[in-house]
């Protein structure tokens, strides 16, 4: 005679309390893992979100590089820089295409970062009494600080040099050189820029190589080089951008 598996086995209710453990351990939830979540959407997954951050991060990085190269024309004189600015603004499709792309990138980058950040906080509800780093960089651990600071800076920066509210009555539409000199002559603004650029540098030290890792590109020989490149690129950006307010403050640019 065959046995019915469901009736020939029983847990002795007298001793077995319905503890947390049995709910947690594989007896109960192993089936759960297989059935409720055998697939996951791209955006739902942490890996997918990181890929979005990588792609948008790459776009923002390329923009920042181009932006700096544009800005450095300040050393070529007022005419060159203002002409360049005029050129950019005159091609409306390019201008708005770029603005929309950047805005979307920023929104996606921040949305993904925020959602991941919240998830990560929930993943460790109780902090260690003592925790020490065994092998990560300061920059990589502070992305959630450098990121929001950069966001605040970007808003200020747009109000400062694009729309002009932060610059006040001295703002002149289209006269980039003039706006720069006036803006950076105000020392607190320059200091804010310098701090923001240092944050940007830190953010990129990690971000520029991390985006490759998130996209699944890693190689024992090239990844270490890439990490060096990330630091070099970040340093170049910081130095290039900081040089402008410093030059204004020192009176090199007038």
């Amino acid at each position: 005679m065959k046995l019915d598996p469901s009736s020939n086995s029983r847990e002795n209710g007298k001793f077995e309390s319905p503890g947390v453990y049995c709910n947690l351990m594989s007896t109960a939830s192993s089936a759960l893992a297989g059935k409720t979540s055998s697939r996951i959407g791209f955006w739902e997954s942490t890996v997918g979100k990181k890929a979005v951050m990588a792609v948008t991060g790459a776009i923002l990085f390329l923009f920042v590089v181009a932006h700096m190269i544009g800005n450095l024309q300040v050393y070529l004189g007022q005419e060159k820089l203002d002409n360049y600015a005029h050129l950019l603004k005159s091609i409306k499709s390019l201008l708005w295409g770029e603005r929309v792309t950047l805005l979307l990138s920023v929104i996606l980058h921040i949305t993904a970062a925020t959602q991941l950040g919240l998830r990560n906080r929930r993943a460790r509800p109780r902090a260690y009494v003592k925790w020490a780093s065994a092998g990560s960089t300061y920059a990589s651990r502070t992305m959630y600080w450098s990121g929001p600071i950069l966001l605040a800076f970007i808003i200020y920066h747009i109000l400062h040099f694009t729309t002009g509210q932060a610059l006040g009555p001295q703002f002149r539409e289209g006269e980039v050189y003039h706006n720069m000199i006036v803006g950076f002559s105000f020392v607190p603004a320059s200091i804010a820029y310098i701090i923001a650029m240092l944050m940007l540098g830190m953010h990129l030290c990690h971000g520029v190589w991390s985006m490759f890792q998130s996209m699944g590109v890693s190689h024992p020989r090239y990844t270490p080089l890439l990490r060096k490149f990330a630091v070099a690129a970040a340093a170049a950006l910081v130095i290039g951008n900081i040089s402008i307010p410093v030059s204004v403050m020192l009176g090199i640019l007038k």
């Binding site: 942490t46 990560n120 991390s210």
Partner: peptide
Amino acid sequence: LFGGCTNIGE
């Protein structure tokens, strides 16, 4: 409920 990777290397 694991968190996501931020590539920091700890």
